[in-house]
Amino acid sequence: MELISVAAVAENGVIGKDGDIPWPNIPEDTQQYRERIADSAVIMGRVTFDAMRHNLPGSAQIVLSRSVTAFDAETAHHAAGVDDAVEVAESLDANRAYVIGGAGIYDLFQPVVDRMALSRVPGEYEGDSYFPNWDEDEWILLARTEYDGFTLEEWVRRSASA
């Protein structure tokens, strides 16, 4: 099972403010993000799930929550933690799952993700949600692609590339 974090991150590490992104919408980033995760299982927290309920991403949503809750979406599944989320993804015959937030979920999964696809948004923004700090020495930058309004960086964990 390959775990991949996908996030848009400002220069100061901000990923959100009041449940939304603090910078103007970047359509090309939204498009590449949606295309990347379209046919895959995605792992997210309950708040992120609720915020995306009107347009759920991925083919299946694995929602981490302390309480077992029924979801009103057929494709949504509950998970109690990291190991449980991986087991749910594997039970769905997924060979990869994308970790898509929020901040607490990124933090929980950072020690175990194999890859990261980070949209680097220029500028610093006020926010209340941050992408977790990580040691670049543990990672290899595979690609950096410039787009209008952001730069996409694709990282692989050194231990995952061996």
Rank of each mutant, 00 (worst) to 15 (best):
L118G: 02
P24D: 09
S40G: 08
F109R: 10
Y98Q: 08
A38W: 10
V112Q: 02
M44W: 02
T75C: 10
M44L: 13
G104F: 07
V113A: 11
R66E: 03
P24F: 06
T75A: 13
I105A: 02
F49T: 04
T30E: 14
E90R: 15
A73V: 08
I37T: 08
R53G: 06
V68P: 10
I105S: 01
D114Q: 04
H77C: 12
M44V: 04
I43M: 02
A38N: 08
H78A: 11
R66L: 05
D114E: 07
D39G: 14
V82E: 10
V121N: 00
P122I: 04
S40T: 03
I21M: 09
P22Q: 10
E124A: 11
G101R: 01
T69P: 03
W23T: 00
H77M: 11
M44A: 05
A89E: 04
D83Y: 07
R53S: 12
G81C: 15
L56G: 09
L108C: 09
R36N: 04
R66N: 11
G123W: 00
M52N: 11
P24A: 14
S65N: 12
E87K: 07
S119W: 00
E74L: 11
A41P: 11
I100D: 04
D72V: 09
R115Y: 13
A97V: 06
H77N: 13
E74D: 15
L64K: 06
D93N: 13
T30C: 13
S91E: 05
F109H: 05
Q31S: 11
A103I: 05
A94Y: 04
D93M: 09
P122A: 05
G104M: 12
R46Y: 14
A117D: 10
V99F: 05
N95L: 11
V121R: 00
W23M: 01
V88S: 05
D20P: 03
T69V: 15
N25V: 13
I37Q: 00
Y33R: 06
A41C: 09
A97T: 03
E35W: 03
N55T: 06
E90Y: 06
